[in-house]
Amino acid sequence: MDLLRFLPLMLEGAWVTAQITALALLLALVMGFTAALMRLSRYRLLRGVATVYVEVFRGTSALVQLFWMFYVLPHFGVNIDPFMVGWVALGLNIGAYGAEVIRGAIQAVPKGQYEATIAVNMTRWQAMYRVIIPQAIPNMIPPWGNLSIELLKATSLVSLITIADLTFRARQLNDRTFETVEIFTLVLLMYLAMALVITAGMRLLEHYTSRGLGRGGI
């Protein structure tokens, strides 16, 4: 059957998609936490920088950001390989959305918890990483799950900057074999499978991180 003939190239593409998703997600987490904490900072400058980052990356389209890094950065003598442009651009984009999720989750921790950390004379950093953030994390996991799916879907854009991801392979195989229906159906199903894996992973993570916080039923 033809589908079996396509499979090796498609799996290669799916592996590239998975790598870009994972790297971009890591970058997004770092950027998201940094920007969220900066937006909650006492210092106006830090708040301002983080706000500009969040608004610019949420306000301009992901594809425009990708093309900007791909076509414009070389003009400044910055030559990054397309693969890195791909995950960096998507990581920065999703990180901007993630920052708002994290900020929301941190602000949703009851005010009494902050007051208690002051009462026991914790520093602001201690309060954040020992009391506030551990309680905020279970709240951020469901929206981060959605963002991860958005990210997975957005990785298809990297096919437009010459990276051989799953979508790129689909177009390549389609141009060569014209087995259009089979190829695109199979690719959509492969994306669905990856999305289901992410959803399942996030459920586990939510269960794991909310242990010992006295949430939900027994």
């Binding site: 879907k153 979508t167 389609n174 259009t180 229906v181 695109f184 959509l188 994306y191 669905l192 289901l196």
Partner: peptide
């Protein structure tokens, strides 16, 4: 659920390349 979990770009290709078949 299916449409929400798969990339818009591939869906556009699907409509553009598959429907003519």
């Amino acid at each position: 659920e299916f449409v929400r979990s798969t990339p818009l770009l591939v869906q556009i290709y699907f409509l553009y390349f598959v429907l003519p078949e």
